[in-house]
């Protein structure tokens, strides 16, 4: 799986990294139970600071998407295990709310937003198969 970062973007690098790893899991490139590269290896490959990768991994851990196990590193958690935990839906819908609000303010209508939402879900599932 290719990870592509834009160091000059307004989005912090660790957030870009987190988003791409989540997308990699959603599309099935990174399967549950698989280990992510070590912090040092990924930082060296990307030529970024180890703290950046570390911050991203901890963010993923906080979201419950990976678990950081001493010695074996960062492992993608099984979907079932993640979905059994409470609070994920609230967190995600809360994060979605300002984006939808902004979409309405800039003049996108409900139909457009719904269409786009379906197309994104379709995209992510398509790559998997």
């Amino acid at each position: 799986m290719i990870i592509q970062l834009e160091p000059q973007s307004d989005i912090p690098i660790y957030t870009q990294l987190t988003n791409q790893i989540i997308e990699g899991i959603a599309t099935g490139f990174l399967q549950p139970g698989h280990s992510l590269p070590s912090v040092r290896a990924l930082a060296a490959d990307l030529g970024v600071n180890m703290h950046t990768v570390n911050k991203s991994y901890h963010e993923l851990e906080k979201k419950g998407i990976i678990s950081i196990i001493p010695k074996s590193g960062a492992v993608v958690r099984p979907r079932k295990e993640i979905s059994q935990e409470a609070g994920h839906a609230e967190r995600i819908f809360a994060a979605l709310r300002p984006v939808i609000a902004e979409a309405l303010v800039v003049g996108l209508d409900q139909q457009q937003i719904e269409k786009q939402l379906i197309s994104i879900i379709h995209d992510l599932k398509e790559i998997k198969s």
Binding site: I3, P7, D45
Partner: peptide, 12 residues
């Protein structure tokens, strides 16, 4: 051009 850094997670 947009400057990017990339890595292939499977290269290792």
């Amino acid at each position: 051009l947009k400057q990017v850094k990339i890595t292939d997670m499977s290269a290792r």
